[in-house]
Design a protein around this nucleic acid. Structure first.
Lengths: 208, 208
DNA sequence: GCAGATTGGTGACGAGGCGTCAACTTTCAT
DNA sequence: ATGAAAGTTGACGCCTCGTCACCAATCTGC
């Protein structure tokens, strides 16, 4: 072939197994994290679930932390488009919060067994809190959504940072609780959370 | 001495060094956790900061997790009495939430450098979330406070579990944000958080 | 105060994880 | 077909883990 070969980066056998190996490691990691918990799991545990050698892990990920973040980031990436749609369709605060919370709690239920469910048999007490770029991006988008929608509907001098923090804090903590209850009722949680936020914002609108 | 010796459990030299050793290990752990972050810190790192041998650690704590929880529990124990006072003095929701949030955010500011500030030089991305008995106790007390005060002032069929989760979620997330801002303004955050919660509850009171 | 009992500190040990790297195998390009 | 490049392998040295036999300091009863 002449220069600028037609082969896209992924057609050759080389690139193919590379992709497969990476995915195998990611799958193994998800499995092990879910089974043993993040704390307990070791890189060796992960690589043992594949047919690869220990050294190979380090060709793809720097550390246990990095592979965890990658998994979290991919999860966040799956959520982001839903939020985008909601933010583009929402016209006012009420519709935005209602839809966003519903989307998030539904997402939690969906990913519940796939995502890291802390506390397998070894039930680590110390949980995980991630701050990947993607999760930051989601947080940022929510803030910008809130700012945008406040600019139109809401009161002027409302601290969007705190409001975003509150919205996310509610989502996190209520999400945990929602998942621990049977039956799973993401809609109920979403109704509760959005109502709480909306009432608060309306109140802020009233007197400065 | 006759039976039932007058020596309280702490007078003898034996018990004295025991107490000192335990405290030395706790102090070293606080220091190392703050310096290196919980993830990176090892039991050896901790014990190396004392004049004790590695085996001695295990006479006092089972694991890194346990000593961390002990530290967290002691911190929670320092907070609990403040909350108790607030809950005994508060007559309605407004005064309770306002005071409770203020107490919590003040507490955060106070303990900020003492408590584990995640992310030293090695800035671990994965944070810590603790569930010691004491922290559970605080959470439970808040729930019971909310239930009590709802029984008097608030709407009947409001989900106290979700409301507590929301209150705590707001406190956690806003607390992080508050600490990252300069100047530190715990009162501003407390005003914001309590107003948000109160408005929400009032709204729930209106229509079922 | 002495002797025996007890408590608790010590540090070496085996097991196992960590990240690295030289040797090797497989694919790619010509 | 052949040399270059990429990627895999597993053994290696270092480290931490939790344990345990040993020992020294303290306590107890006389």
């Amino acid at each position: 072939m002449s220069l600028a070969t037609a082969t896209s980066p992924g057609s050759g056998k080389r690139a193919l197994t590379k992709k497969a190996n990476r995915q195998a490691i990611l799958d193994a990691a998800s499995k092990v994290f879910a089974r043993d918990g993040y704390e307990v799991a070791s890189i060796r545990d992960i690589i043992r679930e594949t047919s690869l050698a220990s050294g190979t892990f380090y060709n793809y990920f720097k550390s246990k932390e990095e592979i965890f973040e990658t998994i979290a980031a991919e999860s966040a990436k799956r959520f982001q488009p839903r939020l985008k749609i909601i933010s583009s369709q929402a016209t006012d605060l009420a519709s935005y919060f209602r839809a966003a919370y519903a989307a998030y709690f539904d997402f939690l239920v969906e990913e519940n067994d796939v995502t890291i469910s802390n506390g397998g048999p070894h039930r680590a007490m110390i949980g995980v809190r991630i701050d990947t770029p993607e999760i930051k991006a989601i947080s940022d988008q929510i803030r910008s959504d809130i700012e945008n929608v406040l600019r139109i509907t809401g009161p002027k001098h409302l601290d969007a940072g705190y409001l975003t923090a509150a919205a996310i804090g509610i989502a996190r903590q209520m999400g945990d609780l929602m998942l621990s209850r049977r039956p799973l009722e993401p809609e109920v949680a979403a109704a509760f959370a959005s109502r709480l936020m909306l009432a608060g914002i309306k109140d802020f609108a009233k007197h400065v």
